[in-house]
Structures are given as C-alpha cells and as structure tokens.
Write a protein that binds this DNA or RNA. Sequence first.
RNA 1: GGCCCCAUCGUCUAGUCAGGCCUAGGACACCGGAUUUUCGAUCCGAUAACCGGGGUUCGAAUCCCCGUGGGGUCACCA
Length: 540
Amino acid sequence: MRRGVVGWLCPSLSRFRSPMTVRTRFAPSPTGYMHIGGMRTALFNWLWARHNNGTFILRIDDTDEERNMESALGPILQAFRWLDLTWDEGPEIGGPHGPYFQSQRKPLYAAAAERLLAEGKAYRDFETPEQIKADREAADKEKRPYINIRRSLELSPAEIERLVAEGKPSVVRFLVPRDRTIAIDDAVRGHVEWNGALIPDPVIVRTNGVPLYNFASVVDDVAMEITHVIRSEEHLTNTAVQALIFEALGASFPVFAHLPYVAAPASKEKLSKRKLDQYRKNPSFKKMFDRGDSVFPKIGLGGQGGLDPVMVEYYEKIGYLPDAIVNALARLGWSLDDHTEIMSRQTIIENFTLDRVVKNPAGLDPDKLFSFQSHWMSALPAAMKDDGCIPYLVKAGLIALQADGTVAPDVRLFVGKVVAALGDRLKLFSDILDASYFFTETLEYDEKNFQKRVAKEGVPALMREFRARLAETEDWSPTNLEAVLNAFATEKNEPAATFIHALRLCVTGQSVGPGVYDCAALVGKDRSLARIDAALARLG
RNA sequence: GGCCCCAUCGUCUAGUCAGGCCUAGGACACCGGAUUUUCGAUCCGAUAACCGGGGUUCGAAUCCCCGUGGGGUCACCA
C-alpha cells in the first residue's frame, strides 16, 4: 500500500478517479492555545494540500461547548498566521462549504441523524446511563468485551413514539453491523481491520440533541468533500466507526492517513500539557523552560506568561522563526531522504508525500529544534533580524518608540549595529535582551568573572592607567582600539588578555559577548570611560 | 484486561514493500582536538543502533512465526 503501488499496478483505476482536487482539513477545538503536536498534524494537512495544489480547510470543532470563542479560538488562528499556514476555507474567510463552525451546522447533523434513523442504520436508545454502566460491569466481570445489549431495538415504532412523547430521555446510537469486518487502507499504516462484533454502538446524538465528534466529523467531511483525513494516531481506533458512518451516509471513504503522535522529548509518550511539571525536570526541555523564565518577565509576561513549550505561542513569544518551526515540525515523523535536514518551506511542499511519513512516534527534540532555529536565523537578512529584535527591546523598556509608534532612525541604526556585532550569537530574537548593556547604564555584573578579571591583584592599577590612555584616544574605532590596547599591553609587559578581559567586564559587566573592541566602540568613548570608572569604583 | 498500532545510534531518521551495493548512512546532542581575547561560529575527529528467539534462504535490519517491550484507545470528550 505504500509508495502508491496501487496506482501504478492498476493504471486503469486512475481513469475512474475523478480529477477532484485534494481537500484536507484540520479541525481544532477552541481550547485557548495551539498544541505543538496538533500544529504538526495541521502542518502535514497543509503540506499535503499545498503539494497537490489542493485546498486546506480549517473547521472549528465547537460542538461541545460554546464558550467565549473569541479568546479560545484567537490563539489558534494566530498560530496559523504566525507560521504562515494559510487556510483556503474556514473562519474569517468562509468558503463554499460553510459554515465552518460545527456549532452552526447543527441542522446538517440533525438531518443526517434522521436519515440514518429512518434507514434503520441508527436507533433511538432509551437505556439509562445506569443500565449501560451495569451492562458494562457485567461484561467486565465475565471477562467478555462489552457491546450494547440493544434492548431499545425491541421497541415498536408506536412504543418509541410514545416514549418520545412522554419526554423520556434518549440518545441516538449508530447500529454497528456485527457480522462483518471493517477495513481501511491507511496511507501510512497500510491495511488495518476491525471485527464489527467487538465494537459497541457509539452514541451519535446526545440526549440534549448535540451530535458527537465522531459523527459530526464524518458528516462534515462528507459535506466538505474532504479527500484525505490526515490526523493523529490516537484516532485510529475511532476510524472503524467513522468508516462505517461514511458508508451509512452513502459516501465513499476519504484516504485515511494516521500520523504517529508527537511524543514528549526522549519518550514515546504523547506530549501532553497535563504533564508539564514532569517536563520541567526533563534535561532537554528544561533549557526551554529556563529560557522562558528568563525572557518572559523582561517583556512584561509575568513568570512563564502562561506559556510553555507545549504551546506554539511559546515559540512565537520567545523569538523563534516560523521557518525554523516549520522545518523542525516537518522533520518530526517525516523525512525527505537519507540526508536532507535543512529545508525551506518550498522544498518541503515540493517533496512532501504521505508515504514517507514514519510510523513510530517521534519525540519532540528541543535541541534539534534549536539547531534549525540557529540555521534559519543565520540565514535571515540583517534588516529582518533588526525588525525581530526591536519589539523585545521596546517591551523590555530598553528603547523607546516615537509618538507615532515607530522607531527613530538613529535608534534603528544603533540596533542594527548591535545585531551585527552579535552575529551568530543571536539565535532567538529574545537573545537581544542578553545584550541589554548596549542600551542601559544599569549594568548587571557577572560577579564571579568580575572578581577574576578585574578585582585581581595589580589589575585595578593597570586599568586606571589604561583608562587614561583611552581618554587620550581620539579614534574610537574597533581597529584602533585594538591597536591601542595591544601597544599598551606591550608597554606594560602584560598579556593583552589581561586588558581584554578586564575591559570587557568593565564596559559590559559580562564575560561573554561580541568582540570587546566592537563592544567598546558601540558603547562609545564617553560611556565606556564612565563605565570603567564605575567598575573601578565598585572595588571600593 | 479487550482491540489496534509500533520497534535501527542518547534523540530525529535513511535503509524494510521489490533480501545481497549495509563491516548499517546522515543530522542533532555529547566527548576530544584545531582556531579564537571571551562566548559564539567554523573546521577536524571519536563514541554510538538493527528488542529477543526460532525459522525460510547460498545470503536477513529487510520475509514468516512466536515472544518481549513501548504506545494508543476503549465516554452522552475532541
């Protein structure tokens, strides 16, 4: 079934296949955040649609509760916008198969349920929850698989009518054929089949008239002419029932493709928001949490800002690049070949096929994600780096916007110089905050290294002299500063490193960063001298 | 527990369908070295895997069977 073997073994088949365009969908429920694993599933749907010049649909699964949609759906749509995964039909833009909110499609589900009822493919079940529970327990006790006893099936039409008239609560159940097997040919898992005799009759419409996911989803997939149902593996078991519903509705199957779920780093367990506390202890995940702890408070998001690495929003807020996330997500459970890792969006679209989806779960690897980020950041044009960093500096109060909300040209120019000096050291946009010393006189000193490099025997005296030499220096360019420092070191018969390290600590407060001459040049002569004074003053 | 899925370096994976080109390739991480005023970047190098057992075959990571392990799912959630 893999590699589209069927297609070329039976070329005649393709003549009967309508030239229907590929239509995929992602159907999130409005939970208030976008799960990174869900995003991977959405991405694969999007990729498959784009690869085939097809249509990608966003459909909102809000059958369950109609809470404040605005705040619950907003972050999800934002995640799609941020990653630039455009949808062709769905919220905000509509489309020919709308509405795209399940809460607005209730008449469609009701009609479909009525039809199944009328055709005897579903039945009204008056069984009480207590009775069902008792049946289940009895089955458990006898160690036999539970399936519905279907007492309500004995009822005559007249009795059913009476019970409904009396207002007796009931649900609609799909009547699972127990005399056959159900089989699908999954695009990633191959042939999978189930024994109908083992499947309980699923509720398709609740007592309150609201349809259930399994049912609504199929009704919508049929109505929206979905050709490929690409979703996470945890739905594989559901597929038996859904396939049956497709049949009952007189529709042909879409192609099913069950992706392995995204697992927690270095594990085979599904990545879950409920296990966040556990993840904090995970060494590779810990780095991400730590980064959030350090960055979010600085940009006005208290603590973790309600964000964590399970959410797509976390990566946006901490300054990842959409291309890096897309690249990393695409490589999670899919590969192009035996060596290609770095892929542009276009490359991925061109090469993405379902038959190269891996079958076993893939653990999210924060290290690898970060390495993709490093690559894409280094490939980003300078002006775009500046654009990405500026919001962080603004939010952290390190630069101010003008009254019209724009950045003053000289500020922008300076930011550009800092970003250039940082070079490859800037991996995330938020990394600009590690270079706050270019923007404020309130330095944070790395005490340990300050003691080691500045407060060391003999160094303060040398630095006082060096400070005087610097004060006489007119040409404050990095090259000249280097020449001055080297000459002075030779004069004093000291290694240049003594002055290099001490100067860095004095001017930036830190022991790491861009070249020390670049730092001094960026800080400027007056401020550099003042900082040396301040540092020496700290020695008391 | 029933049903279903899965199983290659620490991690992501190539190779499995069409058995030999695999003394198993790549990437990330880790470790070592070079370079560098720091960090980073870069370059070089090293360590590291076919879950186990039976078959089939001249030959098995690849096919078959049986185990084992991991995971998913068993709602009037999605």
